[in-house]
Nucleic acid binder design. Structure first.
Lengths: 338, 338
DNA sequence: ATTAAAAATACAATCGATTGTATTTTTAAA
DNA sequence: TTTAAAAATACAATCGATTGTATTTTTAAT
């Protein structure tokens, strides 16, 4: 039982051929004759040889590995983005490392530091809720390696962002509620430190303004959009008495609020119409089913990774911030059918 | 802008101290004086030094990295297992690589091959549906590195398995339906090539036998337990006319069947009581809510990774197959309340 | 058969960190 | 002050693969 992996030197010795030739043969270099290649490949298979990527990467300073960093993999949207990334990465011969920040800045920093140590060729990231400064990302950028942001926009210079048009999606969602006759619409928003939630809030406000509805600051709830936040906000809504519409920046909080309404015999959509964001699987199953915004997660993953590969290979250096916007879609279900 | 990362040699040159001393200082070796350590650490920070793990791992043949290989990260159960793994790994100073086989053997083989190339220190795997031979895993074992199986049992020699007692869980689920008065219980099973589904089927059969209920082969449906399979099976059930209970090896198929029943005005649980497996988030939201088996996913992840670390470090070699069984729990909801 | 060009292969340095051994410096006991 | 022991540091090989350069072998034209 050969406890230690075979190396090119083992092949080299076994055949009396220099290791440089072995290396070239294994990489199918034209500098090695067909006959020799045949011998080497045969012996390699015989010894169960498998390239040591550590050595190879150390020498070439290419790891053929990219990383995705995101809050949590269990969210449907992110799982789909990963699926898209893995699809293109697989075709391009890249390995993908998946990392969860759990929306915690310290963890995100630690992750980036590890990725630097491991010299990954590129990073795609949806930044954590707590990320407001970008030093850790700049450290990676300094190595002249590309970062692509997705989902949550980030204004780091010379980087590409792949997102949906959050302003427009929010505008459409709000307009939809207004069209259904809602006059007093609450908005569940996330932290205003985060560009994403600023954009969504702006879309909500713009739609109200367009329809000459007065903006009421008390109708805008800022939170982490967790289940608990949803319940807390739902209570406040009922206290306000006159609310007839709710547009939430995610499905989690929307659904949690809907459950609370149900428990208090407040009818959705008759009393309060609800629109969420993300199209989580649960949104189609809950009763009434939830009207929500679907993001083309698979496409986002594919586009983000393709843009990353372009930068890694062609050295298409971006000299300014780029925003690539993909179309989202309002999925109208029962929660907003007045 | 220093495009290239600083190395220990840069620090060495800058201070006129040998690189071996620099290396030892950075690893806090007692062989370096405090004074020198101070100088080196200061300069390291100044130059933005970060260890090149590739070089380090190549030399030490330890990557401080473990891998989890599983069908898909988007499944709630697996996402929780990963959370458990990451928690212990983080504490132990290990990095975690997450890989999806998508229940495809070819992908799984490719993944293992990549993990061998990348010399990860250990692997935890829930094998794909298609995995019936283990050559690819044996190749990894030959390197004298540990594998821990979780979720889906696997009888590779000298490996540890971390699972729930699938036989018992199935027995309990079936017994529960029988106690509620069900006489004609259908079982949705997965491929019988897979030990996991054999065990679950055995538990179902044992419960029937215990209650002197005749086993009817027509009541056992083998499939991939997808949504489509659920609908297909639900149609067959209605054709059988007399079915009053359904025990499914996963929630996906159970829920899909329930939806079909609903569309045909067959009542759950009054006409047919349903029990699923996995406690997917949707199972709590669907109406009626689904009785199902909850696995301690977080615990499974923690235990599996801890056992892996033990083997990596203490060299606790297992000389036979070990099975660690954790307790699962039947969560009784409305779908089985007759 | 001679020879220049082309093809195939060998030599040797390198990537960055680690580590056993050797050497120098410091400490402290005689 | 000498000297042995201990502490600190330097030297040099190594992990496995890659790659520019040098050398040898083959091919083909004269």
């Amino acid at each position: 039982m050969n406890k230690n992996k075979a190396t090119i030197h083992d092949i080299s010795k076994a055949l009396g051929i220099d290791s440089s030739t072995v290396s070239r043969a294994l990489n199918d270099s034209p500098r090695v004759s067909k006959k020799t290649k045949g011998k080497i490949l045969k012996k390699a298979k015989e010894l169960g040889y498998q390239r040591n990527s550590l050595a190879s990467s150390l020498r070439t300073s290419k790891t053929q590995t990219i990383a995705v960093v995101l809050p949590r993999i269990s969210r449907h949207f992110f799982a789909r983005v990963i699926a898209g990334i893995e699809e293109t990465a697989h075709k391009a011969g890249y390995n993908v490392i998946i990392c969860q920040s759990l929306d915690n800045l310290e963890r995100e920093k630690k992750i980036i530091s590890t990725l630097i140590s491991n010299r990954v060729d590129g990073i795609m990231i949806s930044i954590s809720m707590e990320t407001t400064n970008y030093e850790h990302l700049e450290a990676y950028k300094k190595l002249d390696k590309p970062i692509v942001f997705f989902d949550r926009p980030c204004e780091l210079p010379n980087c590409i962002n792949v997102n949906i048009d959050n302003f427009q999606a929010s505008f459409d969602a709000t307009q939809h509620l207004i069209s259904r006759g809602c006059k007093h619409i609450v908005h569940f928003s996330g932290s205003q430190k985060i560009e994403l939630y600023r954009q969504r809030k702006a879309g909500y406000i713009a739609a109200l303004e367009k329809n000459n509805i007065k903006i009421n600051d008390h109708y805008i709830f800022e939170s982490n959009l967790s289940e608990e936040d949803g319940i807390r906000a739902a209570k406040k809504i009922l206290r306000l008495k006159n609310i007839d519409g709710l547009y939430s920046s995610n499905d989690t909080a929307a659904i949690s609020a809907m459950k609370y309404f149900k428990s208090k015999r407040v009818r959705v959509p008759e009393d309060i119409a609800v629109v969420g964001f993300n199209n989580d699987p649960i949104s189609a199953v809950i009763e009434p089913s939830l009207t929500t915004i679907n993001q083309p997660a698979l496409e986002i993953g594919k586009m983000a990774s393709n843009l990353l590969f372009e930068q890694i290979n062609n050295k298409t250096k971006t000299t300014k911030i780029q925003f690539r916007l993909l179309n989202s879609e309002l999925i109208i279900r029962h929660s907003s059918k007045k």
